[in-house]
Simulated assay, not measured.
Amino acid sequence: MKSLKSMKKPVIITAVSALAISGALFSQSTYAAQVTKPIQAVYNNIKIIYNGTEVPYDAKTEPFMLDGVTYLPLRLAGTALDKKVEWDGTNKRVVIADNGVPIDQSTVTALNNQITTLTQELNTAKAANTTKDATIAQLQKDNQTLKDDASKNSSDSLKDLQKQLNKDYSDTYNTNSDITLDGNKKDITVTIEMTKSRWEDLSSSRQKSYLEDIVDDILKEYKDADVEGTVKNSSNRDKLATFTTNSKGDVTIKKIASSLDTSTIQRNLSDRYGSYAGINLDFTVRGDSSEATVEVYVTSDDWNKLSGTQRTSLTDGVIYQLKERESIDRVIGYVRNKGNSSQIITF
């Protein structure tokens, strides 16, 4: 047996305030005179589902259909959608508003007091930061002043040492040099200027001794300093050599490779060794100041006439002449047969 509710037939009712699901309202103007019209509504056990949950209602708020449009009471729709619905009878208005959580005045007052306190703390923190910033700026300024003073004192001290070195070494070793110091007490750069001929007149050992004497005097004043330097030609300021030192003040010299006056060197060797122990020798030299190759030409018969001591004395003398007198860093030597240039020995 069908329920009585599902067997309801269309009934005639008086129009009441209702909401159409489609959003349409009755077309009467808000300001029109109140009228009463008969309508034919159909009740068909209509259910309201919101987010998967059925919204309950009673007989007074049951939805109905009219001319194919479904209507339901506005207050019921408001409850389903969590809205506050009120009827303003004076102005004949339906007022819909969001449901809000009421806040009592004590809560508002407490929040305002908290805001005031936080604002005061923020202002205090800003003031403290401003003071700190000013302090930091002053400390940075004082630190820079100290650095400038230290740099000035170090510079003045280096200048005094420079004057003393020039006094002590300008004519030492017959260099007629000019010495300049730059840097600070931890890192000192030495520049020594003299003519190329005066520098090259010094043997390798005397060059080393000359530089080490200067470095020793610097380390007496600045024992923790790293010292390095350059020897320059006073005529054109070309580099003649660079040098570095270790913690003990030992100097390592790196000569700047330069071209050799090979014709002069060969003539000097011929003057000194061209007639050696009764035999005739010819010489050729090629290379630069960093490395040179010397070739000694002699007949096999003459070479065999020399004793082992004479041969060693000859080759050692040639190497000494090139390294010490001509300031060549490395020498490679060959003794060759005058007849066919075949190699006899290397030295």
Score class of each variant (00 low, 15 high):
K132F: 07
L111S: 10
A125G: 04
T107L: 08
Q164F: 15
K152V: 03
N123Q: 13
L122R: 08
Q164R: 13
L118H: 04
N112A: 14
Q105S: 06
G100A: 09
T116W: 03
Q162E: 15
S155G: 09
A150G: 02
G89R: 08
I115L: 15
T107W: 02
E121Y: 07
T116I: 13
A137P: 00
N91W: 08
K92D: 11
T116N: 13
Q114N: 15
L165A: 06
N129V: 07
A127F: 04
N91M: 08
P102M: 10
A137H: 02
N153P: 02
T119F: 00
A134P: 00
T130C: 02
L158Q: 01
Q120C: 02
N112T: 14
N143V: 05
D148C: 01
N113S: 11
G89V: 02
G89P: 00
K92E: 12
K141H: 05
T90V: 13
N143L: 10
K147W: 04
L161V: 03
V101S: 06
Q140E: 07
L146H: 01
V94S: 00
T131D: 09
K163W: 10
I115F: 08
L146C: 00
D149L: 13
S106C: 01
D149K: 12
D156T: 11
K152F: 05
K141N: 09
T117S: 15
D142A: 06
N129F: 11
I96H: 00
K141W: 02
T135S: 11
P102Y: 12
D148R: 01
N99I: 15
L165N: 01
T131R: 06
N91Q: 12
G100D: 07
S155I: 02
N143E: 05
A97T: 11
T107G: 00
D133H: 08
S157N: 14
T119Y: 02
T117K: 15
N129I: 08
T107K: 04
Q144M: 03
Q120N: 14
V95A: 03
K159E: 06
L158T: 00
L146T: 04
V95N: 05
I115Q: 11
K163R: 10
D104K: 08
Q114W: 09
L111E: 13
Q138S: 11
T124M: 11
N153F: 14
S151Q: 07
N143K: 06
K159C: 02
N153S: 15
N166D: 05
N112H: 09
A110F: 06
D104S: 08
K141A: 08
S106K: 09
S157E: 12
S151G: 05
N123T: 09
I115D: 04
N113H: 06
T107V: 12
Q138D: 10
V95M: 06
L111I: 13
V101W: 03
K126E: 11
D160L: 15
N113E: 14
D142T: 05
K92H: 12
P102Q: 10
A127T: 07
E121S: 12
N123C: 03
T131I: 13
A97E: 10
K126Q: 13
N91L: 11
A128I: 03
N143F: 06
